[in-house]
Design a protein around this nucleic acid. Structure first.
Length: 710
DNA sequence: CGTTTTTGCCTTTTT
DNA sequence: GGCAAAAACG
């Protein structure tokens, strides 16, 4: 029983309350993982259920791995069903693949392939892809999947407007094509699972009996399908424990429904709710600042974090002229911290969007500070890796058109655009896969000479590789692919730094494959385990990442740059989602602040280069929500800052003085008048366009010429 | 017909 | 300041 000793009262209650539905509202840094791991260990230790009768799902592989390790430290847990939603779903679906006209070896396609498929379907039926972006159409389809809607269940009403009509049309053929290619996307993994249980009471009952205790981590991030799936599975025993924090729900754009966690007590009769409010991470001013921001949200359970850490430094809020100066300021502060013996890996810069990392990278490099971008370019997203994966995919599944198209002419083998188009046309006419079409065309002598020869070689090679995978070691066959295809030779020929790096990456992948029994297991791993690169615990590196990527992490010092209206909160979140979008932005701010153990420094720039024009913005409204009592405001624009090197003023003033008088008068904060929209205030401006918050009609983007200064 | 060069689009967050 | 699709080139 000694594993219960280091728990506080609320944590202990959550661990011991094993029977019936339970919602654990776990604020940032309150020991959420501890509760989950101890609870699982407790169920096993008490003999309530064996590991194989417990199901625990997380969102990230990292979380799953950490939980597994920590449980193993407490008790024997062999056979525990623990994994991400997607990996658990994939495992289950492979057993019932034939229910969905798939073979158990189906491929899981990634986002890139999804967009490509949607686009090619749109082009096929003559829909203009510049008016309706394939990405947008895909996101509509994905949201339907997240809501549990197969194309047949989408109603006329769901698809009333034009983009939705297009999306529905594409959705149907998209699914057909995926099935023909023996492939599923991420959304399908859960959607099909849900359908499986809905339509097959016998299968559902079997799993209901198997899983006596179900635990869900990060419950605030679940979508409708995940909710429905878990609810069905838990129905018989009713022992569903959901752990999450409504204030940290930041994935609505991926289909997550905050409503799931807000509705918990309604959905599960007799549910118990336990709040974890003692924070073990941050100082009081940090928690106060976070609380005063998040309390502006209407839709939340509401909880008050407190700490015994005691007083600490106030949250700093610093104004800068522009993005470059902001980066230099943050970098100089980082150097100061490192001089004061704060290790680099205890320092993080958290940005709203990926492109904001650039000025920081430049400043960090200029000052020789080692840094790592977390979650930026992923190992499996690299060109050469995706090429090799495509080769493997085709070798394993000749129907995988998307993969074949990617590598059909890599390395160059004289199979160009026109040939690919004719192959696709032939495939469509005869209802064949591309590979099938090539074989048929060769058989009928429709392609001749050099082209026929090149295609013939390719066909024979893929058959050979596929057969070799059946009996030989996967790493050997894969190496064979790289050699036989000429891919390796192509890179060796190039002899640039880049090509050498690519070769190194391919070798690393061969080494990774060597750890797997069979190639199918490796492919499952690559499609579901994406967090490979940039471990945040890397010693000696400052971490640079998006706020989203920072969830679950903690650092001594956290820098939060770019707190400007339009950047953060992001303009799109507000225009597209309105008040809901703003609340989510605020939760992102909350996540950012609560990553810090000792120091938070928020900065905003008055002018920022976005694309190739200067954009002026007002400070984020979230800054105004932080009370002076827990924060300290200053400016790096001149005057009082002691750490400000001479060069700052020189460089910073220059762009300002370059502006013409008339441009300058349209700056953020000025009131303007518009003939039809009335009075408003400029929120941001670029060379031609003004973003104006009108008193009556809300946000609009207006050309400068159409408004007058008041 | 296939390869090289140029243009034109960007950028919210990702299992 | 990057990468993919279209246009020009061979």
């Amino acid at each position: 029983m000694n594993y219960l000793h280091d728990l506080n009262a609320a944590q202990l209650e959550a661990v011991q309350y094993t029977e019936g539905p339970l919602l654990v509202l776990a604020g940032a840094g309150t020991g959420k993982t501890k509760v989950l791991t101890h609870r699982i260990a407790h169920i096993i230790e008490q003999g309530k259920a064996g590991p194989h009768n417990i199901l625990a799902v997380t969102f990230t592989n990292k979380a799953a791995k950490e939980m597994q390790e920590r449980i193993s430290q407490i008790t024997q847990s062999y056979g525990l069903n623990l994994g991400t939603f997607h990996s658990v779903a994939a495992k289950l679906l492979r057993q019932y693949a034939n229910f969905f006209d798939l073979s158990p070896s189906f491929t899981i396609i990634n986002a890139d392939d999804q967009v490509k498929l949607v686009k090619s379907l749109m082009v096929e039926r003559g829909i203009d892809t510049s008016t309706y972006a394939p990405k947008v159409i895909l996101s509509i389809i994905s949201r339907w999947k997240d809501m549990g809607l197969l194309s047949g269940k989408v109603t006329e009403q769901d698809a009333s407007s034009r983009p939705y009509q297009i999306a529905l049309d594409i959705y149907r053929s998209y699914q057909t094509r995926l099935v023909q290619s023996n492939a599923v996307d991420f959304g399908d993994l859960l959607l099909y699972n849900n359908e499986l249980l809905l339509n097959n009471p016998d299968i559902l009952e079997m799993y209901q009996q198997k899983f006596k205790y179900i635990l869900i981590d990060e419950y605030q991030d679940t979508n409708v399908v995940q909710y429905s799936w878990a609810r069905m599975l838990a129905k018989q025993h009713g022992n569903l424990c959901c752990v999450g924090d409504d204030d940290q729900s930041i994935y609505s754009w991926r289909g997550a429904e905050v409503g799931n966690i807000l509705r918990f007590e309604k959905d599960f009769a007799g549910a118990k709710v336990i709040k974890l409010e003692q924070n073990y991470r941050s100082t009081t001013p940090i928690l106060q600042a976070a609380a005063s921001v998040i309390q502006n949200n209407k839709h939340r359970h509401g909880k008050t974090l407190w700490t015994e850490r005691g007083k600490g430094d106030p949250v700093r809020i610093v104004s800068c002229w522009n993005d470059k100066e902001e980066a230099r300021f943050v970098t100089s502060e980082i150097m100061r911290l490192m001089n004061d013996k704060t290790p680099a890996n205890e320092i993080a810069i958290l940005v709203r969007a990926g492109f904001q990392t650039r000025p920081f990278e430049e400043a960090l490099i200029a000052n020789a500070i080692p840094y790592k971008i977390i979650g930026g370019l992923k190992f499996y997203d690299r060109m050469e890796i995706r090429d090799l994966l495509s080769y493997i995919r085709v070798a394993l599944n000749l129907q995988d058109d998307l993969a074949l198209e990617r590598i059909i002419n890599v390395p160059k083998r004289a199979i160009g655009d026109t040939t690919v188009k004719s192959i696709k046309a032939y495939a469509r006419e005869n209802n064949l896969s591309m590979f099938g079409a090539i074989e048929k065309m060769l058989e009928l002598g429709l392609v001749k000479n050099k082209l026929g020869e090149a295609l013939g070689i390719l066909v024979r090679q893929f058959h050979a590789w596929g057969q070799r995978y059946q009996k030989e070691r996967p790493a050997d066959v894969t190496k064979g692919i790289l050699e036989d295809s000429g891919y390796m030779a192509m890179l060796k020929e190039e002899k640039t730094d880049e090509s050498r790096g690519r070769l190194e990456n391919l070798n690393e992948m061969l080494r990774a494959i060597a750890d797997f029994e069979n190639i199918a297991a490796f492919m499952e791993h690559t499609s579901l385990v994406m967090d490979h690169d940039g471990e945040p615990d890397a010693r000696g590196y400052v971490s640079l990442m998006t706020l989203h990527a920072s969830k679950g992490l903690e650092f001594d010092a956290v820098f939060l740059p770019g707190w400007e209206e339009g950047v953060f909160p992001h303009q799109k979140a507000i225009t597209e989602e309105g008040a809901k979008g703003l609340e989510e932005e605020r939760r992102i701010a909350y996540v950012g602040i609560t990553r810090a153990k000792k120091w938070v420094c928020i900065t905003h720039a008055e002018s920022r280069r976005i694309f190739h024009e200067f954009v002026n913005s007002l400070p984020s409204r979230f800054i105004a929500e932080i009370p002076p009592g827990s924060s300290l405001r200053s400016s790096s624009k001149g005057g009082s800052m002691s750490y400000r090197p001479e060069s700052f003023t020189k460089r910073v003033v220059a762009p300002q003085s370059q502006k013409t008088g008339s441009e300058d008068s349209y700056r953020a904060g000025r009131r303007v008048n518009h003939a039809s929209f009335g009075a408003g205030i400029i929120v941001r401006h670029s060379s031609d366009n003004l973003e104006i918050a009108f008193d009556k009609v809300g946000m609009k983007t207006i050309k400068k010429d159409f408004v007058q200064l008041v």
